[in-house]
Amino acid sequence: MSISHRQTASGRPLRVAPAWVGAATPVAGSPADHHPLPVRDAVWIWSVRRFARLALWALPASAVLYGWFTLGVHVPPGPLPIALLAGWLAAVSLIALAGLLAGSRTRRIALTGLLITLAGATLLLPLAALPEESAAARVALAPGQVHTLVEAACAVSGAGVLLLGWAVFRSKLVNPADGVLLMLAAMTLGAGSYGVKPVPTVGALLLLAAGMGLAWTGGRLLPRA
């Protein structure tokens, strides 16, 4: 006996809550409330949501590495590998956060914030990794203008994270306090190049608190029965 793609192994029709899929909650008794979801689609959605929940733990890990980088602790690999690893973990976690918010009402704000953050990180990466003279030669700028471009890239990335924090705050999907912490971390990290030395470290601590909260609450999100 074959099992339909709209049935479970027991033969009962599969029903998936709209909050799990990412659609708007239908009115009770409406035709949309009686449409089951194919099993293969449900498995795919569950896998994506599970990846997003697990990948959120990369955000506190990146905050720890970035805080270590801002403290100027000398390690054998040097500061650049630590900064690159922190940036990579932050990119993975922010992509996961935007994916987790895809089923909320702030999905457009989250997507916009993610794209702006990735644009700033793409601009910042070659400028931070290369010496100032080499970076100036590659972007056809004067050596003194490279630092200004780095500050602009940090501001763009901070604006993107600020939008993501606002999306978290307005989503009603996770704890709004985590969105506030993420916005404060974005403003602190975005202004880190202009402030004194403890400012980036404070931003890393705020990012750590926001990342721990998002990873904990996001990992406990389950579809409603």
Rank of each mutant, 00 (worst) to 15 (best):
P176G: 11
S157Y: 05
H74V: 15
K172W: 06
E151C: 07
A90I: 00
R138A: 15
T112A: 15
G203T: 06
L162W: 10
D178W: 03
G144E: 11
A63C: 12
K172M: 10
M212K: 00
G103F: 10
R15P: 01
D178G: 13
T25K: 08
P31D: 13
V196W: 10
L65T: 05
D41I: 02
F51C: 05
V92N: 06
P18Y: 06
E133D: 14
A17N: 12
Y194I: 11
V150I: 14
G78R: 04
P60C: 13
L163M: 15
A186N: 02
L162F: 15
T117L: 10
G113T: 12
H35Q: 14
R6I: 01
R170P: 01
V161I: 13
P60A: 12
W57V: 10
G78W: 03
A55F: 09
G113H: 09
L207C: 01
P60K: 11
S193F: 12
K172A: 14
V150T: 09
V199D: 06
V27W: 10
A159H: 03
R40A: 14
A98C: 11
W216C: 00
A135F: 06
L189G: 06
L182N: 01
G72K: 09
L189E: 04
L80N: 04
A61C: 14
L207W: 07
G219D: 00
A86C: 05
W88D: 10
R105L: 09
P176M: 08
D178A: 15
P31V: 02
V48M: 13
V174F: 09
S104V: 10
P176K: 06
T217M: 00
Q145N: 11
A55Y: 01
P38C: 06
A215H: 01
I3D: 10
L181K: 03
R138I: 05
G158Y: 09
P223E: 03
G158E: 05
G67C: 11
L54Q: 05
P81H: 09
L173W: 02
S10R: 14
V48F: 11
G120P: 03
L222M: 03
S193Y: 08
L127P: 11
A191E: 04
P81C: 08
L181Y: 07
A191H: 06
L89G: 07
V64E: 04
L123N: 12
L85R: 02
Q7M: 14
A102S: 14
G67K: 08
V73M: 14
V139L: 14
P200C: 02
G87A: 13
G160S: 12
H34M: 07
